[in-house]
Design a protein around this nucleic acid. Structure first.
Length: 868
DNA sequence: CCATCTAGCGTTGGG
DNA sequence: TCCCAACGCTAG
């Protein structure tokens, strides 16, 4: 019984899921109409209303998966719409935020007719922006583990203080995990994979998102250092047209100084043609560029306060001539250029269009220089590249950005220690810069220019120091060959916009709302019943709540209803409404974070593309393809999804050198889990059912992640010995390569047994997950560079850990598929990183007109073998 | 005293 | 049983 429930919930084959829903609704209905007689036989009397609702429910469940549609149409660039200066200050994030607000406010009412209107009074939009602070954004700054002794006290104690004991264990961890992460047979260059989270305290961060909106009275600010005293007042004022004619940075500090009139800065917008050409010629001779973006109200990327991703209005570029120079930064030989990115106000549109074009051309040239061989330092470089791609979409394609050699000081510290992510520039300086830094307090006026210039220079020096650290720790190869090249790829992914059928989503949201309402009501009615309530309350206190609910399903209908309610509710709130709230116009694009995980994976936000529900493909996919693909050929593109099969298990086989696993994977045609299941149950492979396969998969990954015997039997729902060969694998894996010498060290780290065990499990997991993540990253890099060098038009859309999603023109589909498959399987051997796997990598592809409707793509092996 | 905000926890979706 | 993000609930 348990196993059935388990598989119906986890794997959700249509029939099983449908059956459980049917059962739930029927029981529920009977129970309500005639509580005393609710017996098994009575449930046979189905009701047409219930069936109707069931159909709606199921339909919704599957429709959701098909809504995210990837369009061939490149988005129309925003620059074509110039609705006056107000448009300039509309930020994308605010856009989406205000929509989110509308949705939550009028979720069940009809859509507002003027919802897409852009022109709104300035102040009103500010109010909206204020209300859109995302609950989770920036929350990481405050997250302190429960075992932390600092809880509740970190605000008053020094902001970067750490307990000395912790620091030493951290060091130890680094040492022990260095070799652990990439054993010699996998990677030559070992990468220090950071300290185990459990054993490390995250140092309290200065609170940068504490700043309230100017319209609200500010509560007590908990950090002094990261707040600008005057900024709130300035951004509250409505700028007049005359102000906006000037440079934006001038507007914020008007009266005190003019950024562009400072002799140390050179505003490229005010140069004559000849001067510009001289300038770019000169720029070609410098040794390095240090770049930062200037935001709407004056802050630059290096400033800590960027809560809402403000609009970008310019670029500051420091031309670094003498690489060895560490002297005073404001020497005349090092020029700082200022480039305006600001869009032209409507009233000056005609006047500025030509200027804009000229400017675009020059920035394009500049970017070409960037993309050439010059080192190019930028803090949060991904944002810069994305902005560039957005602004100059006509002149600049993602392929051109791909090769740029950008050095980002945000990535390096994360490589050195993955558990310290997202630091602001000031924190980085205090942590990693060895020379004394005078003052990092934000200033205004003339001092601001001085600070900006000196910060740019500091940024460069910091980068150099970090590079040295990388090299001494043996991480340089990994940084330059993988992480650095990810930056433009991620920028390209973020600049790509996925088309979403908004109306359909809205309808779905409403329908799901109705269903939920219905279920909620029922739930409520049922909970009125004393007995039921008692049961539910009784079990609630343990974390095995869900498990208990599963167990209780046979005893009472309520648990089933609760589970189904949760499922539907999750789909509605997290995915349908979630996507709606992340949309700007008709598109979504996730934000990809390279440095937020300890295991080297990528993560995505707004929406979390990696957690969108996996589509159940069982039904009606053929109809869909015929309709979408053959009839309406407006969309000439297909969605291609390519994924590594069982990549973690293959890496486990590689690392543990388990002969049985190795044998299984050497046979490229075989289905690994099927074989395992066959071996486990002692039957022939063709007799293994889907259920058995899922079981085997579940066992394998549980064991890989370190599940104990108890837990395992809980998963299986049966008391059964752990298959001997898996135990063998684990022992082998502990013995060879992975945990052998490190376990000793880990034991020393924590005396408590459960902590030690957790550390061990995490270590195993880091190795597998991190190596898999690196393979995926390398796949992205290789494929992108191949696509860029060929005539392909395919675009990388998303990465879901072991899976890459592309949009491909149908005419290039087959060619691209072969390219991708070959490229990814070739990652078995990577020359410059010393990767040399004895286990072959298997890659599968699926394709379809949209992400929601994919089906397996058959690529004959012989063709791949002969043609490539 | 009340309204509002948020950290922390629990649960769910993905791998 | 490892890694993520998003949401709901609740105590402070």
């Amino acid at each position: 019984m348990e196993s059935y429930l388990c598989s119906s919930l986890n794997a959700a084959p249509l029939s099983a899921a449908a059956q459980s829903v049917i059962a739930a609704l029927r029981v529920q209905y009977v129970h309500r109409t005639d509580r005393n007689k609710a017996s098994e036989s009575e449930t046979e009397h189905s009701n047409s209303i219930i069936n109707l609702r069931l159909v709606i429910l199921l339909a919704m469940h599957f429709i959701v998966h098909r809504l995210v549609r990837i369009s061939v149409l490149e988005c129309v660039q925003d620059t074509t719409v110039r609705s006056g200066e107000i448009l300039d200050s509309v930020k994308e994030k605010e856009d989406s935020g205000s929509e989110r607000r509308e949705i939550t406010k009028s979720r069940t009412s009809s859509p507002q007719p003027d919802e897409n209107t852009i022109l709104m009074p300035f102040g009103e939009r500010d109010v909206k922006a204020e209300s859109t602070v995302h609950p989770t954004s920036g929350g990481v700054q405050h997250s302190i583990r429960p075992h932390s002794q600092h809880t509740g006290k970190w605000e008053s104690s020094g902001s970067t203080q750490e307990a000395p004991k912790i620091t030493s264990s951290q060091e130890l961890c680094k040492k022990t995990l260095r070799a652990l992460r990439f054993p010699s047979q996998l990677f030559h260059k070992a990468k220090v994979k950071g300290s185990i989270k459990l054993l490390k305290l995250k140092p309290p961060q200065p609170d940068i998102k504490r700043q309230r909106h100017p319209l609200r009275p500010q509560k007590e600010l908990k950090s002094q250092g990261c707040n600008k005293p005057n900024r709130s007042k300035q951004s509250y004022e409505m700028p007049s047209e005359a102000d906006r004619k000037d440079d934006v940075t001038t507007a914020t500090t008007r009266g005190a100084f003019s950024l562009t009139s400072d002799p140390r800065l050179c505003d490229t917008g005010r140069l004559s043609q000849e001067e510009r050409e001289c300038l770019f010629e000169e720029a070609g001779k410098v040794n390095a560029f240090v770049v930062t973006m200037v935001y709407q109200d004056g802050p630059i990327q290096l400033d800590p306060e960027q809560r809402l991703c403000p609009a970008v209005c310019g670029l500051l570029v420091l031309l670094k001539r003498n690489l060895d120079s560490e002297g005073p930064q404001d020497r005349p030989s090092e020029r700082v250029l200022y480039f305006r990115l600001e869009q032209a106000p409507a009233w000056a549109q005609q006047d500025l269009t030509q200027k804009q074009d000229v400017f675009s051309r020059y920035v394009w040239i500049l970017l070409q220089i960037f993309c050439d061989t010059k080192p190019f330092v930028c803090f949060k470089a991904k944002d810069l590249l994305r902005t560039a791609l957005k602004h100059f979409s006509k002149d600049l394609s993602w392929k051109q950005v791909l090769g740029c050699e950008v050095m980002d000081p945000q990535i390096t510290p994360w490589l050195l220690d993955p558990s310290d992510s997202a630091s602001c520039f000031q924190t980085l300086l205090s942590k990693h810069y060895t020379h004394p830094v005078t003052s990092l307090q934000p200033v205004l006026g003339q001092a601001k220019v001085t600070q900006v210039i000196s910060n740019l220079s500091l940024l460069y020096n910091l980068m150099m120091e970090l590079h040295n650290k990388l090299q001494t720790q043996g991480l340089w190869q990994l940084y330059s060959a993988v992480e650095q090249k990810m930056i433009p790829i991620l920028a390209a992914m973020e600049s790509y916009k996925m088309h979403v059928d908004k109306e359909a989503l809205k309808n779905t949201s409403e329908l799901l709302g109705v269903i939920i309402l219905f279920k909620k009501l029922r739930l409520h009615e049922l909970c009125e019943n004393r007995k039921l309530k008692k049961t539910a309350v009784h079990i609630r206190n343990r974390s095995e709540y869900t498990f208990n609910l599963l167990q209780l399903q046979k005893l009472h209908p309520l648990p089933t209803i609760i589970l189904k309610y949760r499922q539907i509710h999750k789909i509605k709130t997290a995915f349908v409404d979630g996507i709606l709230s992340c949309m700007s116009k008709t598109f979504i694009s996730s934000t990809w974070n390279q440095t937020s995980t300890v295991s080297d994976r990528l993560s995505a936000k707004h929406p979390n593309f990696q957690a969108l529900p996996k589509q159940p493909l069982q039904i009606s996919k053929k109809q869909y393809i015929q309709g979408g693909h053959y009839d309406v050929c407006v969309c000439a593109c297909a969605c291609v999804c390519v994924y590594f099969c069982q990549v973690e298990l293959r890496l486990l086989a590689q690392l543990s050198a388990n002969p049985q696993l190795l044998r299984i994977f050497q046979n490229t045609e075989a289905e690994a889990f099927t074989m395992l299941a066959a071996q486990w149950k002692g039957m022939s492979e063709d007799r293994v059912s889907l259920e058995d396969r899922e079981h085997a998969k579940c066992i394998v990954y549980s064991v890989v992640y370190g599940a104990g015997r108890e837990r395992l039997s809980g998963i299986l729902g049966v008391r059964r010995e752990v298959p001997a060969f898996i135990q063998q694998t684990i022992q082998h894996c502990h013995k060879h390569g992975m945990c052998d010498k490190h376990r000793v060290e880990l034991k020393k780290l924590s005396r408590a047994a459960h902590l030690r065990n957790q550390a061990e499990r995490q270590a195993v997991n880091f190795v597998l997950q991190g190596s898999a993540a690196d393979l995926a990253k390398m796949a992205m890099i290789k494929i992108c560079s191949q696509v860029a060098s060929a005539s392909h038009t395919a675009r990388l859309v998303a990465q879901i850990h072991d899976e890459l999603l592309f949009e491909v023109e149908i005419s290039q589909l087959e060619q691209f598929a072969m390219l991708v498959k070959k490229t990814m399987e070739s990652l078995q051997h990577i020359e410059n990183l010393g990767v040399n796997l004895s286990v072959p990598l298997k890659v599968s592809l699926s394709t379809g007109p949209s992400w929601g409707s994919m089906c397996e793509m058959d690529l004959p092996c012989n063709i791949t073998a002969t043609s490539l």
